[in-house]
Amino acid sequence: MSRSATASLAALGVNPASELTSTTTDQATGRVLPVRGELAGLLPWGGLRRGSTVSVGGSTSLLLALLADATADGRWAAVVGLPGVGVLAAAELGVSVQRLALVPQPGSDPGPVIAALLDGIDLVAVACPLPPSLARRLTARARQRRAVLIAFGPWPSADVELTAESVRWNSLDDGAETLRRQEISVRSGGRGSAGEPRRVLLSFGAEEIELPLVAGGPAGSDEPADAGPDRADELATRRATTWGRPA
């Protein structure tokens, strides 16, 4: 790509992957939406960069966890084409559900619906299968509107692919225990990740989960948003050794 082309792309807010570094400035200026610590380590920008497309596979919890910090930070999210999405689980994972809109049935022509959402909603998660040409157009739309498109399932032009390799829970003790602690092993790849695949262990529910009583206050997440990947990894490992099975 020629230097001038790169410059004009940069003017549009598109940067070459080499410049995609995780900086707190990006988060402060709103160019990157925050995600919880462990996930930040998987994303080349340390968060969800506006205008990017991220695909998620293998776990609905992982999809919901991506929405948590941004919605708690006052951003809006929409989930399209996922009628069975567990909103309560979303709240438990830290999503501020009062800024969550659901479009369970986008109809036979979901293109205009998703495009309209990208116009005003910061994070748009799409779970319905789309023809590749439409998917590419929506990726372009997200870039243009500075929204984050999260594809739940394969997507032809994703900048980053996050895949849950396993979802494990604390072992139920035949009536004596209940599901409390969840561990998701996530692998990142894709053209925007610039480098070899990375892996991270996401832990949820090590602390007591408090839900907001009314659909009012934002739900807190387990980790501070700015916890670096190192600290997060360390925490995840420690938790894993305390109670879980080896991942």
Binding site: W76, A78, V87, V97, Q98, R99, L100, A101, L102, V103, P104, Q105, P106, G107, P112, V113, A116, L117, D119, G120, I121, D122, A215
Partner: peptide, 21 residues
Amino acid sequence: RAVRALLHVQGLLGPDGVLTP
């Protein structure tokens, strides 16, 4: 901006097309 986008989608799908929990 978000509210307008959601109203727009309601215009496309009807009021029940966009739900909030």
